[in-house]
Structures are given as structure tokens and as C-alpha cells.
Amino acid sequence: MRRDLTARQRQVLLLAANGNTNPQIAAWLDVTTQSVAEILSAAYRRLGATDRAQAVAIALAVGELGVHDIHIPDQQREAAA
């Protein structure tokens, strides 16, 4: 049985999904990198994931994150056009 992510877990996972590193997320949210790592670890456990990429994939699949929440870098968008 899957448990929903907390609002903070969803926020941090979304920042990670958009290519931010733990130090960048920590600076953005004014918390420590250790706090970011702990929040992500808790999110992984709730989702049944073992790493960042799998957590994002599962979160997208179960509706915790929306595909429109993920921002495509301009370079990749131009290459696809």
C-alpha cells in the first residue's frame, strides 16, 4: 500500500526532478544539504524507490508529480524541434 508524499517531500522531489542538486535545493529552501538528503530518502521509502530517477518515475506514474511540472531544458527542446 502506497502512502502519499508529504508536501515537503513533493516539493523537494520536484526540485530534484528539474535537475537541481541537493546543495542547490538546500540553498533554495534555506535548509541544510543533510535535510534535503533526509527528505529525499523519506520520499524514496514512501514511493518504494531506491534512487532519485526511480523516485521521479514512480511519482510521475502514480500522480504525485505531473508531467507538466518537469521543465525541459531549452537545449533539449531545441534539439527535439
Rank of each mutant, 00 (worst) to 15 (best):
M1A: 14
M1C: 10
M1S: 13
M1F: 13
R2S: 09
R3I: 12
D4K: 11
L5M: 09
L5H: 07
L5Q: 08
T6N: 13
R8M: 11
R8I: 09
R8H: 08
R10W: 10
R10S: 10
Q11N: 12
V12I: 12
V12C: 10
L13P: 10
L13D: 09
L14W: 09
L15G: 08
L15T: 07
L15V: 07
A16G: 05
A16H: 10
A16M: 13
N18P: 11
G19M: 11
G19I: 09
G19S: 12
N20C: 13
N20E: 15
T21S: 15
N22H: 15
N22E: 15
N22V: 11
Q24H: 10
Q24C: 07
I25P: 13
A26G: 09
A26R: 09
A27N: 11
W28C: 10
L29E: 11
D30M: 09
D30T: 09
D30C: 08
V31S: 06
T32Y: 12
Q34E: 15
S35W: 15
S35L: 12
S35H: 14
S35F: 13
V36E: 10
V36P: 09
V36F: 12
A37W: 14
A37R: 14
E38D: 14
I39F: 07
L40F: 13
L40R: 15
L40Q: 14
L40N: 11
S41H: 15
S41Y: 15
S41D: 15
S41N: 15
S41G: 14
Y44A: 04
Y44D: 05
R46V: 07
R46G: 09
L47G: 03
G48C: 08
G48T: 06
G48Q: 06
A49F: 05
A49S: 07
A49H: 04
D51N: 13
D51G: 08
D51K: 03
R52P: 05
A53V: 02
A53N: 04
Q54N: 04
A55P: 04
A55C: 06
A55S: 07
V56A: 04
V56P: 00
A57E: 00
A57V: 00
A57I: 00
I58Y: 00
I58P: 00
I58H: 00
A59P: 04
A59I: 01
L60R: 01
L60C: 06
L60E: 03
A61P: 05
A61D: 13
G63V: 04
E64Y: 06
L65Q: 03
L65Y: 03
L65C: 04
V67C: 05
V67Q: 06
H68G: 08
H68L: 08
H68C: 05
H68S: 11
D69C: 07
I70E: 00
I70Q: 01
H71T: 03
H71L: 01
H71V: 03
H71Y: 02
H71I: 01
I72R: 02
I72C: 02
Q75I: 03
Q75K: 04
Q76S: 05
Q76V: 03
Q76N: 04
R77M: 05
E78R: 01
E78N: 02
E78A: 02
A79K: 00
A80S: 08
A80E: 05
A80G: 06
A81E: 03
A81W: 00
A81C: 06
